[in-house]
Amino acid sequence: MIWTPQMMLTNSVKKIDRISEDWHAVSVTDLGRCFYYIGNVFTSSCDVDVTFYPWDKQTCSFEFMPANYDPSKIKLSPSKREVLLNHFSGNGAWDLVSTGVKTQLGDYMVLFEIEKSRC
C-alpha cells in the first residue's frame, strides 16, 4: 500500500474537483523516489490575446495541486521539463510551438504549459 495525494486541476472549465483515482499508477525507484502517473482527459481554460490575429500565439496551462494538504507537508517536482507528447494529436487550426513544466507556490503546484500558434 502506498499513499497518494488527491490532486485537482485548479483552472478547470468545469467545477474544481479531485482528479485522482485508485487505478492511477505509482512507480517507486530503488532510491525511494515516487512517480505518480495521473491519466485523464482535462478541460481547462486560458486567457486569449488576439491582438495579432491571425498570426497570434497563445500559451495555455494546466495547473495541478494537491487538494486539502498542508503545503509544508508535500513537495511536487516534475520528472521532465517538457510535456510528454505520447498521446498528442494536432489539428488544422494550431501548431504546437513549445511545452514546459514548472512548479510554483514553493513546489506545491505544477504547471504544464503549452504554447501554440495559429496555422
Rank of each mutant, 00 (worst) to 15 (best):
S20M: 06
S77Y: 11
R81E: 08
S98I: 06
M8I: 03
G92I: 14
S77N: 11
F64S: 07
K80V: 11
N68T: 12
M7G: 06
G90M: 12
G106H: 09
F88I: 04
T103E: 07
D22I: 15
E63K: 14
V48F: 11
D107S: 10
G106T: 07
T103L: 10
K102C: 04
N40K: 04
D56M: 10
D47H: 04
V97G: 04
D49K: 15
I38N: 09
N86L: 08
N91H: 11
I114N: 01
L105C: 13
F35I: 05
W3L: 13
Y37D: 00
F52Y: 13
T59S: 05
L84G: 11
F88P: 00
G39A: 09
S27H: 06
V83C: 09
V26D: 06
K75W: 01
E82A: 00
C46H: 12
V50W: 09
L9E: 01
S117R: 15
T51P: 06
E113I: 03
S61D: 08
L96M: 03
A67Q: 08
W55S: 05
P54T: 02
V48P: 08
E113N: 05
W23N: 07
G100S: 09
Q58W: 07
L105D: 13
S20C: 05
V110P: 00
I38R: 06
V97Y: 01
F35A: 04
Q6I: 00
F88H: 04
I2C: 10
V26F: 10
Y108P: 12
L31W: 03
D30K: 14
L96Y: 00
R33G: 11
P71M: 02
C119A: 15
S45T: 13
G92F: 13
L9Q: 06
N91K: 12
W94I: 08
Q104S: 15
F42E: 07
S27G: 07
K75T: 06
L76A: 09
E82H: 00
D49W: 15
D47M: 03
L76Y: 03
S45Q: 12
R33L: 15
L105N: 15
Y53M: 02
H24N: 15
N68L: 13
W94N: 06
S45N: 14
L9C: 09
F35G: 07
Y108F: 15
M1F: 09
T4A: 12
K14F: 00
Q104H: 14
T59R: 05
C119E: 14
M65L: 14
T99K: 02
W23E: 10
L31Q: 03
K15N: 14
V50Y: 06
F35V: 03
L111M: 02
S72P: 11
D56Q: 14
C60I: 09
Y69M: 13
F42C: 02
C34P: 12
G90C: 10
L111D: 02
K75H: 02
T59M: 05
P71D: 01
P66Y: 02
D49G: 15
